[in-house]
């Protein structure tokens, strides 16, 4: 299976390079044409691994999504350069984050994540997850996927898995460029945590990776929400916009003190609990509640998506 998949994706990459049609045509009749047509398909196909690979290629080769990842990767570079050029004084009253970053480049990761978390990162996730089903419906390929048959539940799971993978890729891209930029532009050394104690650079890096993982889990909630939204409309733009507005709306409510009673139920409320990972020892109450909230949202919206999609009339 893995061999087949590798050659499969290699071929797809080739296809993207706009080679002349003649060259493509020449490679059509393969030598192994004598093989039997219907041998039992490998187990991986039944699990949807092949479809997952194909969908992954579709999402990550799409220019729009590549642009989003590039944008996310550019944020820490821009922030890093801006901080480097601004030559801040330690006592000018700016955010503590700024002096932390300039004092230790490792903190650029946290800084960059903090900047993209309210809007840019959720927007990127919304684009991919909102487009997942509605995009196929919009261009009509959904009816063919279902007639193949891809299976409605299987297709939904694959689409969700691809959106979550994109979340991880987005956070990873940002974290990686932030680490590299931070190491290049600023001094690096033992990490002083928010609680005041200092840990070794290695231990500090582990903390940073935990922060990135927690944030990825938080924004991955949007993958389930976007999937659910994506099953109720045939317009990808409507699905993406709706999904992108929800976390913004949630954060607005979170900022209104009079609505304090509902704050614990907002998924974005727990996104910022990652700073508990930067204390010694790690304070877990909020982190645990956050993760449970993300899980609850994922289950609720995943169920909604499943209920809707498996009973939906596909008329587009």
């Amino acid at each position: 299976m893995s061999t087949a998949d590798t050659s499969h994706s290699t071929a797809e990459v080739d296809r993207e390079t706009d080679r002349p049609a003649i060259a493509e045509a020449a490679e059509v009749p393969p030598p192994e044409a004598a093989r039997p047509v219907m041998t039992a398909a490998p187990a991986g196909s039944a699990l949807g691994l092949r479809l997952f690979g194909s969908e992954l290629g579709l999402v990550f080769r799409r220019r729009r999504n590549q642009a989003l990842l590039t944008l996310l990767g550019a944020v820490p570079v821009m922030v890093g350069i801006a901080l480097k050029l601004s030559t801040p004084r330690p006592d000018d009253g700016g955010p503590r984050l700024v002096s932390q970053v300039t004092g230790n480049g490792v903190f650029l990761t946290v800084g960059a994540l903090f900047f993209v978390l309210p809007l840019i990162l959720p927007l990127a996730i919304s684009v991919v997850s909102g487009d997942s089903i509605a995009g196929e419906a919009g261009i009509g390929t959904l009816r063919y996927l279902l007639a193949v048959p891809a299976g409605r539940t299987r297709l939904l799971l694959v689409k969700y898995a691809v959106s979550v993978t994109f979340c991880v890729a987005a956070v990873t891209t940002l974290t990686a460029t932030a680490l590299v930029t931070g190491l290049l532009l600023f001094p690096v050394g033992p990490v002083t945590l928010l609680s005041g104690s200092t840990v070794s650079l290695g231990a500090g890096m582990v903390r940073l990776l935990l922060v990135a993982a927690y944030i990825a889990a938080g924004v991955a909630t949007l993958a389930a929400i976007g999937l659910a939204v994506s099953t109720v409309t045939d317009s990808p733009i409507a699905a993406i916009t709706t999904t992108a507005v929800l976390p913004v709306f949630s954060q607005v409510i979170d900022a209104v003190p009079q609505l304090r009673a509902v704050h614990p139920y907002l998924f974005t409320h727990w996104w910022y609990s990652y700073d508990d990972l930067l204390r010694a020892p790690i304070v877990t109450d909020h982190l645990t509640r956050g993760l449970l909230t993300f899980l609850a949202y994922t289950l609720v919206f995943g169920s909604l998506a499943w209920a809707r999609f498996t009973s939906k009339d596909v008329t587009c």
Partner: peptide, 9 residues
Amino acid sequence: AADRTADPR
């Protein structure tokens, strides 16, 4: 790829 019963080989 969407057809789980098709043989990728």
